[in-house]
Amino acid sequence: MAESLQDLLHRLAPLLVDGSPHAQTLGLALDGLGPGRATMRAPYRKDLVGDPETGVLHGGVVTALLDHACGVAAFSGLGAKETPATLDLRIDYMRPAQPGKDIIAEAECVRAHGLIAFVRATAHDGDESDPVATAQAAFMVTRPSKEAAERVKTAIAEGKL
C-alpha cells in the first residue's frame, strides 16, 4: 500500500527543520505537521533579542519563523515532494512579543495547485487570538527545488539520509 501523506510527513518531519542550518541556529522546532498545515516554535533566547532595553525578540526571528512555517505548510500542501521556494512573504507586525515567551507560528496552506502554493500564518506567544504578527506568502516549486529533491532521493537510496 502506498504511504499516506501523513505517514510521509511524519517520516520527513525531522529533516524539515534539522536539515536547515539557519532554522537550527535560531532553535526553531516543528511542533505539529499535517496535510497543508505546520506549527513551529521559536524559543525565547537572549542571543536573539532585538531590543536590549525591553528584551523583546528581534523581528528577524519572527520573519524567519514565519518564512519557515509557511514553507513547511506549502511543502505539505503540495504533496511533500519538493521543497518550494518563497516567491513573496508579507508580514504585519501587530505588537512586540512578550519577553521571556516562545513565539509560535501556525501556518495553513490555503491553496496548492501545480507548482504554486498560497499560505497564511499567524504568530503568537500563547494566545492565538492576540497575534504578534500575521503573514501571507506564495511559494513555487522551482528548477532548483526539483534538482534538490532529486539529490534527496539519491541520498536516501544511497543510505546517506
Partner: peptide
C-alpha cells in the same frame, strides 16, 4: 536549504 544550496529567506 543546503540541498539547493540557498540562504534562508528569513
Amino acid at each position: 536549504n543546503p540541498l539547493v544550496p540557498a540562504l534562508h529567506g528569513g
